[in-house]
Amino acid sequence: MKEYFNNIYLAFSTIFIGMMVTFKHLFVPAVTIQYPNVKPQLPSRERNRLYVNMDDCIGCDQCARACPVNCIEIETVKSIPGEDLGQTTNGKRKALWVTKFDIDIAKCFYCELCVFPCPTDCIYMTDVYEFSEFERDNLIYDFVPLTEEERIEKKENHEKFMAEKAAQKEAELKAKESKNNSQDKK
């Protein structure tokens, strides 16, 4: 009989305690962040989408070599004499046309290893983390500011220049040979 009444007392007292707890929480401010409208404050060293500032890139290929998953692809073409590519912000002279700088962000796993070797600090992590796409191909980011034609033009320029150079060399060689030959005849 004592247990019976004790049970009733226990039931009501515990329900009362529980209800007091929930009642207090009714007036605790919600911890919800209204996400798309209000964005949470990210830590300052948060690693997110990569960005390349192509004005500073000298095409040294060190980031591509550092990448553990090979998500960066770089192709460069030497500039011909007379072309001025300008300087990077920390004073390095640019000598290469970067004709391809693709980052496959779908492969990237945000290790930040590409950021440290960069001599001009042009590749870095941004705080953008909303970049989902419906097509996987759209996740291959092309950072080169040149148009398709310009890239072909740069390559052709370089080839032409090399061909001219080769032709010049050959001509010089021939000239030398013919000189030698004529000397031999004499």
């Binding site: 929480h25 007036f27 605790v28 919600a30 911890v31 919800t32 209204q34």
Partner: peptide
């Protein structure tokens, strides 16, 4: 009520 008891906001 359920949302605020659980420190959420509920439908917004």
């Amino acid at each position: 009520v359920s949302a605020h008891i659980q420190d959420r906001l509920g439908p917004m």
